[in-house]
């Protein structure tokens, strides 16, 4: 097995969007921004993929769960059903 040279080539440094943009706040009522951190199936996208920092991912996670409770976001599946 050859070593994987592609991995280094394609890796790009991800940065936390909430740290970069101070005006962007995490709120469970702000569905538009939360949609960016949820997969098509309605799952929360993991930190290693979206690149948010630990603090913001924790806040985001809570906000998404609250939004789900009040039917802003789906628990599973797309918003259509």
């Amino acid at each position: 097995m050859a070593p994987r040279p592609q991995k280094k080539l394609f890796s790009r440094r991800k940065s936390c969007r909430f740290c970069g943009d101070k005006e962007l706040t995490i709120n469970y009522k702000d569905v538009k921004t939360l949609r960016n951190f949820v997969s098509e199936r309605g799952k929360i996208i993991p930190r290693r993929i979206v690149g948010t920092c630990a603090t913001h991912q924790r806040q985001l996670c809570e906000a998404i769960k609250q939004a789900r409770q009040i039917a802003f976001l789906p628990y599973s599946g797309s918003s259509q059903g």
Partner: peptide, 13 residues
């Protein structure tokens, strides 16, 4: 508003 899932068989709320 449109609900993300059915609540008591309602799609709107």
């Amino acid at each position: 508003k449109k609900l993300a899932y059915l609540i008591k068989k309602e799609t709107l709320g």
